[in-house]
Structures are given as C-alpha cells and as structure tokens.
C-alpha cells in the first residue's frame, strides 16, 4: 500500500492487520519520499503527485507540476479541462459542473468576483493580510456611518 506521505498507510495497514491480513507492506515516507530518493530513470512512478496545497501537484523533481485547480471543487484540472464549456474560473469545472446547484454556482461566482476585486486592489482575498484589509474596510465604514450620524444630528440642531 502507498499514499502521499505515509500517514494514510499507517492507518490502512493497521486496519488490514486488524481484519486478519497477515502480510501487509507500505511505502515508508510515502510517494514524496520515493520521488526524493529514487532516481527518475529507475522510477516506477507514472504521472504527478497530488499535494494538498496551492501547488496542486508536484513532478518527479518535487517541483510544482502541470495541473491547476478548480477553486469550486478543489480537484486538479488540466489545460484541456479549462477549455471545456463547463469550466468557469472559480465556479465550475468538468468534474463538478453537474454536481453543484445553481445556488452554489452563484455563490462561487460571487466569491470569485470578490477574489478578483481584491486582486485589483492588490490585496490578498484570504489570509492575514485580507483579515487586516477587511478590518480596515470595516473601520472605515463605521467611521463614515458615525460621521453621517453626527452630521445628521447637527442638521437637526441647527
């Protein structure tokens, strides 16, 4: 048995042992360690290895691979997938188009819009920076509202 970094195999082989399988083997350190240790010429690995971060996949040299990711369903997508009419950046791809409702697609579209707006403003949409940016927007709004309130009050009194 094998998996990305070895952790799932610790559980899967433990489970098989418990189920009565006597001889169970697993790849120590997982695919990532294999790609690191075994020269590409000798490798029996085919394709790229999916990783759970923004790189999506890594190749045999452990560098960022060829795949992009659908930001709706998080599945890896190819350039070909992106040519599909079911692909809309951040909203749907050929993998998830038929699995999501119109409501969900609308929500994803709104999120994508916010991401693009944030990009235009030069802010990160998520993460610490965006928390700070969001906080600033909020404070700005509160200040404006307070000013409006004060202005209205003064008007009343005058």
């Amino acid at each position: 048995m094998f998996c990305t970094g070895g952790i799932r195999c610790e559980k899967s082989t433990a489970y098989l042992k418990e189920q009565g399988f006597e001889e169970v083997y697993h790849l120590e350190g997982g695919i990532l360690k294999y790609l690191e240790d075994v020269p590409e010429q000798e490798s029996l690995w085919e394709g790229e290895c999916f990783v759970f971060d923004e790189r999506v996949t890594v190749n045999h040299s452990l560098e960022k691979g060829e795949y992009d990711q659908c930001h709706a369903c998080r599945l890896p997508i190819t350039e070909e997938d992106k040519q599909s009419e079911k692909y809309q950046r951040g909203v749907s791809c050929p993998h998830c188009f038929d699995k999501t409702t119109d409501d969900q697609k609308a929500r994803y579209a709104e999120r994508e819009k916010q991401v693009q707006l944030a990009l235009k403003r030069g802010e990160a949409h998520i993460g610490l920076e965006s928390n700070e940016a969001a906080e600033q927007h909020r404070m700005e709004k509160i200040r404006r509202r307070e000013q409006d309130r004060l202005a209205a009050k003064q008007k009343q009194h005058s």
Binding site: M1, K11, A14, E23, Y25, H26, Y34, D37, E42
Partner: peptide, 18 residues
C-alpha cells in the same frame, strides 16, 4: 480503535519498493 502504534504493516524503504 485502529492504532498504528499497536499494529501496523511492514515499512518498505523507497530504495526497496520497486
């Protein structure tokens, strides 16, 4: 109740995997 610390498969080093 699955605990790899109790019982787990045999570890194979990458160099022995092929």
């Amino acid at each position: 109740g699955i605990d790899p610390k109790q019982s787990v498969g045999t570890y194979i080093k990458p160099k022995d995997w092929n």
